[in-house]
Design a protein around this nucleic acid. Structure first.
Lengths: 207, 207
DNA sequence: GTAAGCATATTGTCTGACAACCAGACAATG
DNA sequence: CATTGTCTGGTTGTCAGACAATATGCTTAC
C-alpha cells in the first residue's frame, strides 16, 4: 500500500492559512478580503488567491458575489438551525453504522478535550470537539459521508466559535460526548441513535 | 421584487458545457481532459478552464491528481452503493419534512417524465428523474440540504447514465415515483419515510 | 436635499511565460 | 536479469502584467 504523503500546493497552504485565521476568530464576519490584498500579503499570485478563496467559499466560510470582494460569512441563528437540521440525519447514520464499535481516534480526541487546561482558548475546545465527530465519521468508511460532513463541519465550527454561549460549562460538553461514545461503543443501533438525538437536542433549542 | 437574472460567467458557461457533455455520456469515464486542449477548443484562457474543472471536480464528476490531467470519474458499483448509503437519510429527511405537502414542481417533472416518448434517450429520462428529486429537496427550503443533495445528485446522475440496467422498464420508474409523491403528499411522516425506503431499496440490491 | 454623473477600486478574464513534476523509455550498473 | 540513474516530452502549478466590465462612493449640479 502506498502511504499518502501530502505535498501541499500553494493554493492548499493559503486556504489552510485563511481557514485557520477565520476559524480562530481572528477575522470577524463581514470583513472583506480583496484578492489583491491577500496576494500582496502572502506573496502569491492572484490566480492562486482566487482558487484558495473558491475553496473556502465552497466550504461555506466565505461568501462571494459578482464583482465584490469575498467576505467572511455571517452566521445567523437561522443558519445554525439549518445546519443542525441537516447534520442530524448524518450524525444518526454515523452512530447507527458504528454501533458496537469503539473508535480509538474519537476516544483520543475526547481525552485531549478533557485534558485541555481551563484557560485554553475556546477555539481549541471547538477544534477537539470537531475532531471527535470527524473521527467518528471517518471510521464509518464512506468517502461521500466524509465529504458531506466535512462541508457541514467547517461551517458548524465557525458557528461554534462565534456563538460560544451554548455551552457555558466545558465539563458538560466533555461528559456529554463521553456518554455519546459509550452509547455507540456498547449499545445497539437504536440506543446509539437516541444518544445522538439527545446530544444534538441539548443546547440548540434555547435560542 | 427583482428577478434574479443570471449573467453567466465564462467559468460557469464552460462548467455547464462540460457537465452536459459528461452527463450525456458523450465523454467516457477515464477520458483525460488536458487544460490546454479545452482552452483551445472553447477559446477561453487556461485559468478559466482550471476554475471550471475545479467546479466539476468538486461535484464528483471529474478526478484530478497532482500534475495529471483531469479525467472523467469512473463509477463503480461500490460508488453507487456508497452514494445510496448517504442519500437515504437525506431523502428520508426530505420526505418527512414535506409530509402532507404536495410539491407542484415535482408533479410537473413526473408529468414530463411520463410524457417522454419511448425512444427518447435514456439520459433525458435520468434528467427528469433527477429534476423530480431536486424539486422535492428545494421545496424543503433548507439551503444546506439543497447544497449537499446537489453534490450527490450530480454524481448519482452520472451513475444512472452509465449503469442504465437498473430500470429495464421505464413505466416502472414512473409508477414508482407517482407512488412516492402520493405518499408524501397525503401520508403522515412515517408513511412518507417508508415510501422513500421502498423506492431506494428497489433495484439497488441486485448487484 | 436629492439625483445624476464621474472617479476609483475591485473583480473577471486574457496573454504569455517559466518552473515543477509525472510518465515512459533507455542506458548504465550490479 | 533486475535495479537504478538519466533523459525527454507533455502537462500542470504558479507567476507577472494587463485590460475590460462593473459596483461603490464621492462630487457636483439642480
Amino acid at each position: 500500500m502506498t502511504l499518502p504523503l501530502h505535498p501541499v500546493s500553494a493554493v492548499g497552504a493559503l486556504a489552510d492559512a485563511l481557514r485557520r485565521r477565520v476559524l480562530s476568530g481572528e477575522i470577524d464576519p463581514g470583513t472583506t478580503l480583496p484578492e489583491q490584498e491577500l496576494s500582496a500579503l502572502y506573496g502569491v499570485a492572484r490566480p492562486t488567491v482566487r482558487e484558495a478563496l473558491a475553496v473556502l467559499v465552497h466550504e461555506g466560510l466565505l461568501r462571494r458575489e459578482r464583482h465584490r470582494s469575498a467576505q467572511v460569512a455571517e452566521v445567523t441563528v437561522a443558519d445554525l438551525d439549518d445546519l443542525m437540521f441537516v447534520r442530524r440525519p448524518l450524525e444518526e447514520l454515523t452512530a447507527t453504522s458504528l454501533a458496537g464499535r469503539r473508535v480509538g481516534e474519537a476516544d483520543a480526541a475526547l481525552a485531549r478535550m478533557a485534558a485541555l487546561p481551563a484557560d485554553a482558548p475556546w477555539s481549541d475546545m471547538v477544534a477537539e470537539h470537531m475532531a471527535l465527530h470527524q473521527a467518528l465519521v471517518v471510521a464509518v468508511g464512506s468517502p461521500r459521508l466524509e465529504r458531506l460532513y466535512g462541508m457541514l463541519a467547517v461551517e458548524t465550527r465557525l458557528g461554534l466559535v462565534r456563538l460560544r454561549a451554548v455551552y457555558s460549562d466545558r465539563h458538560v460538553l466533555v461528559a456529554e460526548h463521553r456518554n455519546l461514545l459509550d452509547a455507540i461503543g456498547s449499545g445497539p443501533a437504536e440506543a446509539a441513535r437516541e444518544a445522538v438525538a439527545a446530544h444534538l437536542d441539548h443546547g440548540w433549542g434555547d435560542h
